[in-house]
Structure formats: C-alpha cells, structure tokens
C-alpha cells in the first residue's frame, strides 16, 4: 500500500507541472479557439535565455526566473503578432500551421544560443528530499503544486472579478458583440496571449529548476504535455487543466512503476485516445468548459 501511495504522490507532484503547462494552454485555447503549437518553444526561448545568463554570469536564481518568464512572454507576443493576429477569424488551421512554422524558428534560435543537448539549470532547493512519515516528497514539486493552485486561483479571480476578465469572457462568447460594446478585441487577445506565455514561463522555470537541467527536448515536451493535460481535463477550462495535469501525472507514474518508461508514454496516449472517444469534452466535460471559459456551439476551429 505504501509504495502505491508513494507512486500516486510522485504522480501528483509531476502532474502539477503538467497542470501548470495546461493552464497557459487552456487560456489561449479558451479565448481564441486556436491551437498554439509554439507554446512550448516560446517557453524554451525563455528558459534558454535564462540558462545562457546562468552559465555566463551565474546570477541569483530569481534573476534567471525573471529572464525565463520575460523571454517566454516576448516569444509569445511574437507568435501572437505573426501567427494569430493577422489571420482572420476562421483561419484556425492556418494559424496552427503557422505556429508550427514558428516552432521550428524558435527551436533553432534556442539551439543557436546553446547548441549542446543539455545544460545545468539553477535549483531552488538544492534538490533535497523531505520525509513525511513513510513517504518521501520533493520540495521542488511542492512549490510547483502550490504555484499551480495559486495561479489557477489568481486566474479565476482575474476572469471573474476584473474588467479585463469580463472583456475576455465577452470575446469568448461573441467577439463581434464584444467589439460593439467597446472592448478592444485585438489588445485583449494580445494581453491574454502574453499572460498565457507568462504562466508557461513560470511552469518552465519551475520544471527546469526541479530537474536542475535543461534539454533541447523542452519545446516539444512542454507543448505535448500541456496539450494532453488540457485535453484530458476538458478543453479550455481552468479546473480541467488542473485535473487533467494531475491525472496525467498519476497515470504516468503508475504505468512507469508497473511496466517501465516506454509503456508510461503508451499508457498516457492510450488513456487520452480512449477518453477522447468516450468523452470528447474531457473529464470535466462540456459543462465545466461552459462554466469555465465558455465554448461556442459548434467547435468549428478547423478549416476554412
């Protein structure tokens, strides 16, 4: 029983990083009904800038964190300006492919900065372990869990208690009516994008400091994990992102424990596939989406 609980705990810990990533993804998808494949690579740009600074000058860790988040926001704004803002409503596929093209760009830019496969990254806690009775937890991951809960609470407050949130929700419901009400749709979307990238930047920084290293796989990893967690939890919903992230973490931890690392990924994809077929709206389903960030009737983000 104790190993089982320990594995579950481990899963929840790792899952909190997925949840954080999914939060940013859900914000973008919830508002734009578009998929930003460059989400992970934007985080990678921030992380690589932070790493570059860390290797060259060894600044305090908080400076690295600030640079990582700022870099991610800058890259996010670049992506929004190039791939989302100029393409009209209904150009969902073009936006997605365009964000993929920029993925290639951001990844190569990162590798030009730091060409090796992996580099050290500063840790927040020195990577120590804490014992809680029979269980072991890593404070790094507790920080991540706390960050995830704090950010989702802050995001919920932002959406439901501020003018910016009101505008954002109005745009999600009907962007024409929103603009006729005096809401600056383009600016609000850009702000939402920057915010999502900032959340991604924080997620990236926390994950890397827990791992104490950064690898060239970061971009793809962050996009895929964030996307899968969001899909498992429920499209574009904040509670869904958290539930999805934690569920993905637990599924991975148990299947890795039972069958090894290859089956870990297989299990995650299999669960995702079966879930999509049986319950396309994700665990928290459509109602959660509607309550969370609104969803337009027909999900026609696809072609045309």
């Amino acid at each position: 029983m104790i190993p089982f609980i320990q594995t579950t705990l481990d899963g929840l810990m790792v899952g909190s990083s997925y949840g954080l990533l999914a939060l940013g993804f859900a914000l973008i998808f919830g508002v734009m009904r578009r998929l930003n494949l460059s989400y992970g690579p934007s985080i990678m740009i921030g992380a690589y800038l932070g790493t570059l600074l860390y290797i060259k000058f060894g600044p305090p860790t908080y400076v690295v964190a600030i640079v990582a988040v700022a870099g991610s926001v800058m890259a996010g704004i670049y992506v929004e300006r190039l791939c989302f803002a100029p393409l009209g409503v209904g150009a969902g596929v073009a936006s997605m492919v365009s964000s993929f093209a920029i993925w290639m760009q951001l990844e190569q830019a990162s590798l030009l900065m730091l060409p090796r496969h992996s580099y050290p990254f500063p840790s927040l806690t020195g990577g120590e372990l804490w014992s809680l009775g029979p269980f072991v937890v890593r404070p790094d991951y507790l920080i991540m869990l706390a960050a995830m809960l704090a950010m989702s609470a802050a995001l919920t407050l932002l959406l439901y208690r501020t003018r910016f949130g009101l505008g954002l929700r109005a745009i999600v419901e009907n962007s024409l009516a929103a603009s006729l009400s005096g809401i600056d749709v383009e600016r609000t979307m850009l702000k939402a994008f920057a915010l999502a990238s900032a959340i991604g930047g924080v997620a990236g920084f926390l994950v890397l400091s827990a791992n104490q290293q950064v690898t060239a796989m970061l971009g793809m990893w962050a996009t895929l994990k964030g996307l899968i967690a969001m899909m498992i939890g429920g499209l574009g919903s904040i509670p869904g992102a958290i539930v999805g992230g934690l569920a993905l973490g637990v599924i991975e931890a148990h299947s890795q424990n039972l069958f090894g690392p290859q089956v870990r990924d297989l299990a995650a994809y299999a669960v995702l596939f079966v879930l999509l077929v049986l319950r396309p709206g994700g665990i928290l389903g459509t109602t959660a989406v509607r309550r969370g960030m609104g969803q337009r009737g027909g999900d026609r983000w696809t072609t045309t």
């Binding site: 009101l166 009400s181 005096g182 609104g294």
Partner: peptide
C-alpha cells in the same frame, strides 16, 4: 445589433457591465 447578440453565458448584470467596458 441585429439579432441582439447578447453574451449568452454571462449574467444580465455582466452583460450590462460589458456595455460600460470603456
């Protein structure tokens, strides 16, 4: 606007607040 275009998933009060966005 034609066909009203209210924000269906927002409360009546929030719809009014949206009108006063600026």
């Amino acid at each position: 606007p034609e066909n009203r275009l209210v924000f269906p998933q927002m409360s009546v009060r929030e719809n009014l607040l949206a009108g006063a966005y600026q």
